[in-house]
Amino acid sequence: METPADLDARIIKLISQVVPVKPEQIKRGDRLREDLGMDSVCSMELLSMLAEELDLDVGVEDAAGIRTVADTIALAARFLRAKAAA
C-alpha cells in the first residue's frame, strides 16, 4: 500500500520530468505556473501523465482548478481512493 509520502514523492518525480526542476527543489506548496514555470498545456500534460502512471480514470474536466503541487497530489489521492473503493 502506497503511503502519502510515497505518493508525494511519485508525483514530484513526475513533475520533475515535465519541468527542468530537480525533485528535491519541488515543494507541496509550489504553484505550477508561478513557481515551476508551467504553462496551461504543460500542467495538463502533467495530469495526463499522472493518470497514465497511476492508471486513474481522470476526465479532462477534473483537471480544472489544479493550481499547486498539493492540488495535484490531492487529485491523485482522491482518484486512488475512488479506485480502491470500486
Binding site: 495538463m44 500534460e45 495526463s48 493518470a51 497514465e52 480514470d57 479532462v60
Partner: peptide, 11 residues
C-alpha cells in the same frame, strides 16, 4: 474523443 481517452487525450 474525450469520453474515450479521458485526460489521456492530452497526450
Amino acid at each position: 474523443l474525450s469520453a474515450r481517452h479521458k485526460i489521456g487525450l492530452l497526450r
